[in-house]
């Protein structure tokens, strides 16, 4: 962080509401969209996560903050089992999505990933047209007529606040858009399959401030219908857009609670040190 401390409480979005409701894991459990229970993660021999417990309420934005290499991304990559691309990595414990453990052996991973969408750090536009990028997921999961397809692509692009900018460019290659537009195209692509949860892994770290602001606005609009978990390096961003914040350090969840509480009166010394910029 920078040397000058930024009065982070002034950027907090939700004022008193969250403050009055301190949550403990047991209290919130029944209402949780996602319950992470004792999640540990191993990259081959190396353990990256230790006994993570997190409860994520539906229709909220949860930010995950912490220094580089603390396991933030690793943590959310267990939610959609995307880590399975690499053979030797494994997760233990449970990630309950609506009460069902997504790490279980009988889970239909394809359906899981429809329900749990993901946005990555850098825009990952496929080498296809704007339209085909958004249609990619739809073609996997649904059999749609041409008209239905066009309708759902438009809806997804609108949800990602991109429609007005690309409505005349649908047949152009996705790679021709600007970086910020590409990232929103990726959001539209993820939203098109109508997920319930949206995981965002440092979605604005590779794009400029104006585009970042647009994405943050979009996140606020999406909150009503989706449960959003966002990993971010940017603490102002966490303070601006999230309802809950988890602070990770060394693969452990050091503190988890309402964002306002984490940023104004954290219970843990480590959290306070990180937030005030003393390390990290």
């Amino acid at each position: 962080m920078s040397d000058t401390p930024i009065p982070i409480s002034t950027t907090l979005r939700s004022p008193a509401a969250a403050e009055t409701a301190p949550r403990s894991a047991s209290e919130a459990a029944p209402a949780s969209k996602i319950s992470v229970r004792d999640l540990s993660f191993f990259y081959g021999e190396h353990q990256a996560l230790y006994h993570n417990d997190v409860e994520i309420a539906p229709s909220t934005v949860t930010a995950i903050i912490g220094p580089s290499g603390c396991g933030k991304s690793t943590h959310i990559r267990a939610y959609n089992r995307i880590f399975e691309l690499y053979g030797k990595d494994r997760a233990t414990g449970a990630v309950l999505l609506d009460g069902e453990n997504v790490l279980g052996p009988d889970v239909d991973v394809i359906e899981l990933r429809r329900k749990v969408g993901m946005i990555f750090q850098k825009p990952t536009v496929f080498p296809q047209s704007v339209f085909e990028n958004v249609a990619y997921g739809l073609r996997i999961h649904f059999r749609l007529s041409r008209a239905e397809m066009a309708e759902r692509v438009e809806k997804a692009l609108r949800a990602a606040a991109l429609w007005d900018e690309v409505r005349d460019k649908l047949s152009q290659p996705g790679a021709a858009l600007s970086g910020g537009q590409q990232q929103r195209l990726c959001m539209a692509r993820a939203l098109a399959v109508e997920p319930e949860v949206l995981l965002m892994d440092e979605p604005t770290s590779a794009i400029d401030p104006v585009a970042t602001a647009k994405i943050e606005d979009t996140v606020q609009d999406l909150k009503a219908s989706y449960t959003i978990v966002i990993v971010t390096h940017n603490m102002q961003q966490a303070a601006r857009i999230s309802d809950y914040t988890a602070f990770f350090y060394g693969g452990r969840v050091v503190e988890f609670g309402p964002t306002r509480q984490i940023f104004t009166k954290p219970n843990q010394r480590q959290t306070e040190d990180y937030i005030t910029g003393r390390f990290g």
Binding site: V109, R113, G137, I140
Partner: peptide, 24 residues
């Protein structure tokens, strides 16, 4: 990351290989 994004949308491995990786 390109493979991951396609997989994250629920694409099966063969689909990722042919539709995204090969095309790239």
């Amino acid at each position: 990351t390109l493979r991951e994004s396609a997989l994250a949308l629920g694409a099966a491995r063969w689909r990722v290989t042919i539709g995204v990786v090969f095309r790239s």
